[in-house]
Design a protein around this nucleic acid. Structure first.
Length: 457
RNA sequence: GUCCCGUUCGUCUAGCCAGGCCUAGGACACAGGGUUUUCAUCCCUGCAACAGGGGUUCGAAUCCCCUACGGGACGCCA
């Protein structure tokens, strides 16, 4: 039975790299029919708060990563908060003591390596250190293959304060929770020999290690840090990204299904995910591709779902409020669906349906008034629509066709200036649908206003 | 500084482990064109990469070595 875990430290942020680690673990568990365990490594009291935990759990839920064991789920290997596992850690300290691999120095407990000792001056750390000549530790990493590293220094496993350190508790918890596969970021690769040595010293079988590449910032050097745009899951939640899109994009960063498939449903992802599809090289974060995927997911949402998600976005942006008739919102959403890649762009895309003080885009204005006599066209449109009572799309289409024919032009000739007048921009939803939703009164009012302002100046 | 890992289009990647099927495939972005009488979608075309050098081989993106570059780790943080 495969048992994998995601073991975050609640810091108050849910980093995209952590999220991807969680996702890979989750996928692997689901793929292999094993268990996915959430273990909270909350031993650093200084930065651990209840709110930090909430951020993490909300983020996990939002991404759809459910855990079989952990906080709020329970399980037979608890507690799932590292801070509550102290008795277990102590017992394992005793075990190490029994096999004589522990000694005390400066009030702390050190793990003793086996091998010849000598002292050298470390000029990076500017001090004398005791080195140990020991056999290299060999890790068979599921992603990177054979990794060999020599451990040459004893290390602290219990601080002078009495608190055990990460390397130790992490290993003990993995042993006692029966973890079979440790899938984590490559930044832990250098630590792994220490962990392997502890597994060995404790007489426990090592788990399979799989170190996944890091996510690098979109520009500039280094890995994504919490201050970078797009680094936090909270940001995607706040910006109304679709979790399915974020999840899908994250899969593609550092893992490949080996063929040309990119947009994949969870079932397919689970079906196809495997450790040997994980890449070795670090991946650079690219928001554009995420946005594209988000748009693709948005476009295939049923209208009901789309409206259900989009409505609060318009609300939050202050575009609509409780006074706004539901039917109006619904009609606008119907014709705007699939037009933007991000729900957060919707308010800016559709605001003019709900207010008359919409902005006029100067680039659009230039284009519209570049040639011909757009004002004359607009006037003709006005006089024609004035006499039209049926503002259905079909009726509007017939009307514009008639208007165009009598002038010997294509109906399209009237679109840009009309659209500009009623919306202030060059793009938007389907032309006739837009006029239909705006309705006769508002359409005429807006055209009249533009006509008046333009003629006056 | 030491150690570990990596390096295919601007970006994510396929191909590498099992060398010839690679005049290196796909996607995002970008540029052109088409469909849509408009917007978006969609479709087509284009642009664009095996880090460099040595070696092994009849043959190397694929195997080996070196260099360069990138990333990470070196905490009584996790």
């Amino acid at each position: 039975m495969t048992r994998v875990r995601f073991a975050p430290s609640p810091t108050g942020f849910f980093h995209i790299g952590s999220a991807r680690t969680a996702l890979f673990n989750w996928l692997y568990a689901r793929h292999s029919g094993g268990s996915f365990i959430l273990r909270i490594e909350d031993t650093d009291a200084a930065r651990n708060t209840e709110q930090a935990l909430t951020v993490l759990i909300d983020g996990m839920r939002w991404l759809g990563l459910d855990w079989d064991e952990g906080p709020e789920s329970g399980g037979e290997y608890g507690p799932y908060f590292q801070s509550e596992r102290r008795a277990i850690h102590d017992a394992y300290i005793d075990r190490l003591r029994e096999v004589d691999r522990i000694y005390e120095k400066d009030g702390a407990l050190w793990f003793r390596l086996e091998g010849e000792r000598h002292t050298v001056y470390d000029d990076f750390r500017k001090k004398e250190v005791e080195k140990v000549r020991s056999a290299p530790i060999v890790i068979e990493d599921a992603v990177r293959g054979r990794v060999e590293k020599e451990l040459d220094e004893d290390f602290v496993i219990v601080r002078a304060s009495g608190d055990p350190v990460f390397h130790f508790v992490n290993v003990v918890d993995d042993i006692t929770m029966g973890i079979t596969h440790v899938i984590r970021g490559e930044d832990h690769l250098s630590n792994t020999p220490k962990h392997a040595a502890l597994f060995d010293a404790l007489g426990a079988p090592r788990p399979v290690f799989a170190h996944i590449p890091l996510i690098l910032k979109s520009d500039g050097p280094g890995k994504m840090s919490k201050r970078d745009r797009g680094a936090l899951i909270e940001e995607y939640q706040r910006r109304h990204f679709l979790p399915a899109a974020v999840r899908n994009y994250l899969c593609l960063l550092g893992w490949s299904p080996k063929d040309d498939r990119e947009k994949m449903a969870p079932e397919e992802l689970i079906e196809r995910f495997d450790l040997d599809g994980i890449n070795r090289g670090n991946a650079r974060f690219d928001e554009q591709k995420l946005v594209h995927l988000n748009g693709a997911y948005l476009r295939e949402l049923p209208l009901e779902t789309y409206a259900w998600m989009a409505r609060p976005v318009l609300h939050d942006a202050g575009i609509v409020d409780d006074e706004t008739p539901e039917d109006d919102v619904q009609s606008v959403l119907e014709i705007c669906r699939g037009k933007v890649n991000l729900l957060e762009d919707l308010p800016g895309y559709a605001d003019y349906f709900f207010r008359d003080d919409y902005a006029f885009d100067s680039a659009a204005e230039k284009r519209v008034f570049k040639k011909g006599d757009p004002l004359a066209d607009l006037e003709r449109v006005y006089r024609t629509l004035e006499k039209l009572d049926d503002f259905s799309a079909e009726s509007l289409e017939r009307t514009f066709a008639g208007l165009a024919e009598s002038a010997g032009v294509k109906p399209f000739a009237y679109f840009p200036v009309t659209r500009f007048a009623v919306s202030g921009r060059a793009g938007g939803p389907d032309f006739y649908a837009m006029l239909r939703v705006l309705g006769k009164e508002r359409t005429l009012g807006r055209i009249r206003r533009v006509l008046k302002e333009r003629k006056g100046s």
